[in-house]
Amino acid sequence: MAETLAPRAAPAAGARARTRWQMLAPRIRRHKGLMVGLAIVVLLVVIAVFRDYVAPQNPIKIDVTAALQGPEPGHWFGTDQYGRDVFSRVVHGASISLTVGAIAVVIAATVGTAVGLVAGYYGRGVDALIMRIIDVLLAFPGILLALGIVSVLGPSLQNLMIAVGISGIPFYARLVRGTVLVAKEQLYVEAARVIGVPIPVLLVRHLLPNIVAPIIIAATLGMGITILQAAGLSFVGLGSQPPTPEWGRMLTEGRDYLRDAWWISTFPGIAIMITVFGVNLLGDGLRDVLDPRLRI
């Protein structure tokens, strides 16, 4: 019986997936903001991956004879106080910022989703305990939780990712818990429970795929905030350390030369803004397409 059913189940699932994609594809294509955001993000990823070809100059090589030169052919974004090519540093910085943002979001979304799934599904005492802890963590506004964690772990790029990632966990946990509370009352969850699907399998294979849309939306929008927070912490000296070409760090390094060499701080700032702008447009677009009810 199972053998005869199995071959039929696979194409049915594939057909369902195709139908969902076929439904979404025209909406995605029609959404101008989403397409612009996607183009910016794809371009940035390409630049980050092929950084050695886009900017062949060594981003950390010091050449004091070329210090503080303005934008010109050969040094499109000028040079900094150590004669390093600002364009190369900005291009190489793309891979650092995107990696930091992605890893921090993955930490926050994965742990937050797991916590939210458990709290929402089990309810009662487990939920009450987890949510009280989440409430306490949410009492630390904005960057403060990340700041506290960096102060404990010590300033470094790796600790920065961990700190920003952990500080995002409460947000995802609360979001997922709320979604699970609604989803677990659905008939398919009850059916899975009745036929004896183990709870971890039920949570991961049945519940999770049905609540993934808000998580994707939140993660995309959260990536912009994460990149800003990471750059900010590096700016105040709590993230990447010299000579890493990290955008936030570059802003600090150019600060003392603002009067005579505006380009050192200006271009990394524009790079941060374009990246976050692209990610935000993509996130807003995905929200409109996947869940138009959430639109603001």
Partner: peptide, 17 residues
Amino acid sequence: TLGISMPSFWLGLILIL
């Protein structure tokens, strides 16, 4: 959307400039 994407500390530097 641009305002949300702009790092406040960078805007501060530009205003100083």
